[in-house]
Nucleic acid binder design. Structure first.
Ligand SMILES: [Mn+2]
Ligand SMILES: [Mn+2]
Ligand SMILES: [Zn+2]
Ligand SMILES: [Zn+2]
Lengths: 138, 138
DNA sequence: TTATAAATGCACTTCCGTTGCATTGTATTT
DNA sequence: AAATACAATGCAACGGAAGTGCATTTATAA
């Protein structure tokens, strides 16, 4: 069980109060969050700082971006040992049309996708839209 | 072989000069286009008109939107007889990281995607990113 | 032709993402 | 401990894309 400090350290990122807070915020959320979500959670902090913090996290593969089709970028913590870069590690994302929340389905890897001759696949984004478990009541 | 006029008619959309031009523009393009692409092609027309024309086309399933992850919405003509609404009809899209173009791979349908219990899948967006046939030279 | 409704054009707004620069804070060296 | 160097933060402003309100023009139908 690594502490957050150790994690940031291992990524060569300075440990600051702001970063610890934002990391904890992301960690306790079960869903992907937008920048405004973070803004609302930290009234006192500046937009830009939050923005750059998340960017830093992203570059160090602490969080990954999610484009769920709403037009607003969302972020979620990477799993431990996750390599977002590697194509085989890509999981799918689910966006609920009802509650508007987006979740990582980390257990559900993206299947092999065939592309035509001449095309080279490097990355895949797969978003399933519908009704989530909380909203479906099933 | 249907004329464009007949197509618009069949969708209960008025035939106007602007609409015919925009339709033709989309038809001769082999790639998905952004609103600015259309703007550049029609200097004299107003942004809003182009915007609303494409919206109208979209609502009548003449074109479909593509979210390729660039953050900019792109549009492409639907195949004849295409039902974008129906999940089984969804094809995948390819975005080239080199030339930045996005194409419909209409022959490549999206495979069945399993979602966890309680989740209901209604729509799927699948974008493959990499190098396109024109850029790969293969 | 006239009446009705839709299409177009212009101006303006909002939202998100992004950058420049000054200031504050942290770490390292002397 | 003081001085130095660099990274993080805060504030302000910018830019692109999407969207809206309203007046005007154009097309269809009565
Ligand atoms: Mn995820
Ligand atoms: Mn397509
Ligand atoms: Zn939901
Ligand atoms: Zn290409």
């Amino acid at each position: 069980m690594k502490t957050i400090e150790q994690l940031l350290d291992s990524k060569n990122i300075r440990v600051t109060a702001m970063r610890l807070l934002i990391y904890k915020f992301l960690a306790e959320k079960q869903v992907a969050v937008t920048l405004s979500d973070i803004e609302n959670a930290f009234d006192k902090a500046d937009r830009t700082t939050l923005y750059r913090t998340v960017k830093t996290f992203e570059e160090s593969t602490i969080v990954h971006q999610i484009d769920d089709g709403t037009g607003i970028t969302k972020y979620a913590l990477c799993e431990k040992g996750c390599n977002c870069d590697i194509e085989t590690d890509l999981h799918l994302h689910f966006h609920c049309n009802n509650c508007n929340e987006t979740v990582c389905l980390t257990e559900h890897k993206i299947p092999q996708i065939k592309v035509p001759n001449g095309f080279i696949s490097e990355d895949i984004n797969l978003v399933v839209k519908g009704v989530c478990d909380k909203c479906s009541g099933l």
